[in-house]
Design a protein around this nucleic acid. Sequence first.
RNA 1: GCCCUGGUGGUGAAAUCGGUAGACACGUUGGACUUAAAAUCCAAUGAGGCUAAUACCCUCGUGCCGGUUCAAGUCCGGCCCAGGGCACCA
Length: 820
Amino acid sequence: MLENEYYPQKTEKKWVEFWDKNKTYKTYDDSDKPKYYALSMFPYPSGKLHMGHVRNYTITDVIARFKRAMGYNVLHPMGWDSFGMPAENAAIQHGANPKKWTLDNIEYMKKQLKMLGLSVDWDREVATCKEDYYKWTQKLFIELFKKGLAYKKEAPVNWCEKCATVLANEQVIDGKCWRCDSEVTKKNLSQWFLKITDYAEVLLDDLDKLKGWGDNVKTMQANWIGKSYGTILKFKVKEIEGLEIPVFTTRPDTAYGITYLVVAPEYKDIEKLTTKENLEAVHNYRENAKKMSEIERQSTERIKTGVPLGTHIINPFTGRVCPIWAADYALADYGTGAVMAVPAHDSRDFDFATKYNLPIIQVIDGEGYDPNKVFEDPGVLVNSGEFTGIDNETAKKKITEYAEKMGFGHSKVQYRLRDWLISRQRYWGAPIPVVYCEKCGVQPVREEDLPIQLPTDVDFSVQGKSPITTSKTFQNAVCPICGAPAVRETDTMDTFICSSWYYLRYADAKNDKKPFCKELVNKWLPVDQYVGGIEHAILHLLYSRFFTKALRDIGLLDFDEPFKNLLTQGMVLKDGSKMSKSKGNTVDPDEIFANYGADTARLFIISDSPPARDFDWSDAGVEGCYKYLCRVYRLYSKFQDKIKLEYNLPETVDKKAEDLIREVHLSISKITSDIENEFQFNTVVSKYRELTNAIYDYIKDEETINYDVLSFALVTLLKLISPVAVFMSEEIYQTLGGVGSIHEQKWPVADMTKTKQNNILLIVQVNGKIRDKIETTAGQTNDELTKLAMNSEKTKQFMDGKTVVKTIVVPDKIVNIVVK
RNA sequence: GCCCUGGUGGUGAAAUCGGUAGACACGUUGGACUUAAAAUCCAAUGAGGCUAAUACCCUCGUGCCGGUUCAAGUCCGGCCCAGGGCACCA
């Protein structure tokens, strides 16, 4: 029996157990149905769910349930991005064991996710920190290493003092650490990199294939990859025979205006290029640049500084001798680390030349040219020898061609993207599976020795080095080639490596022979719908695309993009700003579950705003959704003895039954298309409410209710609402005597022949302005409708004394009379 | 500076192809039920004008200016504002 009022607290837990016991959401690999892979970005097990999680997983879950009802074999898995700093910080601060801390959090959050009512196949759960997962992360690293895509080199790298580790470029946001927000400095270290730059071109080109991704994300990735077309020009050094400095420029058309050359302070040949008199000054400048934080160094506000090296280059176009300077506005790791300076046509060079009194030579002329200002607009070449008079776009090509012919240059495509620095001097990550042998050099460990397990005899309180290095045994290894004693690598991998392939593991989560079997990943992938936060627009999404392409080239899979459709959901706000602990405006999902039930939370979080937009949480909104669910529940409670799951719609029905039947079919149609069209759940919820209102209208006069018609409406509503109100719909379905689960039922199909209206409201316009609305029968001819409009008294007064020029008719909708 | 996304009532937002702007809610106001409250149900709710009237009717109204069209929230051109991304990338 359904009770008089709805008490989610009493029922929800029961259904979690019911679905667990019956394996309602288990996914089988062998099925005749078409596959559908719905995936949420997996959470970091921080301890408790927040509303951002609730929104993310609810959206994906509703999609998964809808697709299941539509007849798809749906893969909807969940896991844990469970390596990373917070576990280690807990160890440092409270002496916790990172593993236990993490696994406890997972246990708690898993319970919460079940309470949220997710239709996840938990048999495929993965946790990146578990040995049965990171064993395969290590294996994939070795594959990349063998393919030449993982390498070690010494380079200036981003260093976060607070986290005591290096960071990838993508993890430095505005010169600060992405995790702890403290300032990042450069350090020269020997580190492991993945050669993502080998894939720059294809990562950029394939963005075009991703029709199901938003332009915002694609643009962010394109900007990050940063392709630019330019020219390499090589300059002979006057003082040193045989030494050349190549530069990269996107403005070869300004080559006649070069007045000096700049190398980055870290430039490899800088000492060779410095005369004895200048050595000390250059050395000091260089040391100073090293100490500077990235924020300071990259600030465009800062007044540019530099020191002359004392040597010169010869401009091959003009023969002009130009001094070489070291200045930190040149970046060591972009292009060649050296730039040609054309102060007349580059604002940075202009600032620098003005400060140090270097000559400024105009070589482009155009509208608005002012000798006292920099001129960066297009124009026509002047002072440029045989190229004078040519427009600058053409000149770019001609000058490059000339340089190529003369042997001192060539065109070049340059990317902004840098290789991915993956070493971390931290404990809680997957150890990089290599050893260093004095004789054989860097060697990956043998596959049968995987996983290289994290040591447990470590001291987390050490400072300035990784806790792993305090293990007494970890570093002692044997060379896999010669068997001699070797030293084990103590760095762990960036956790973004672990999350770059987890979506593949779900396809074959239990495999203990390899990361995944090719057949199964090819079957399930690519992910049909990926849902997650915009904050991963570059980091995780770019890395994952790279991984997929690299693994395809290694031969482990056969597709080249992992995520076919991407939905970046908006943030959950409260009182207009992002929920955060520091602002104290968070809402605890547990409390909402306890007070209103998970169905209320699910319904509320998908209503009001479309998924991609930010969503403002309000207590009144929650209350409103709870009341709506109660209103729905009361319908079933009131008529529970009359509702038939198997009903027979009568051949002929009265007008009000006909209206209700029409509304049901319209609702099915609208809800289905709104879900299919970009998951517009907010309008789906509106339609639930409209249908509910229509049913309430129908039952007003109890005498005239046809219970087959009512059953049709109520059973259909139950199915339509079941992906959202997962608990309540199951409770009602089971009470009505349903077999199996409501969540195994087919999605209703709209009969569009039943949605036709007999009566329409004809809008009559004069010169485009509405003058009358006439109720009339549908399906009349244009002439009939025009006549009707012309005869309207209201319309006539607006046509008085004027001639009708023409009339436009939109059948069953509008007649517009144009008068003069 | 470059790029992306958005701008509609008091609020969240709807509006297939250009065809009734404001669906559905929240909030507010009034009413019914009740000893009372809660819950529930009903009604009104863009702005301004006309009016005895909350009736009828009229005017205006989707960031701003202009254009195309019988008709523009929707299409075109030019701006403004907000949010986000990138940025000493040569």
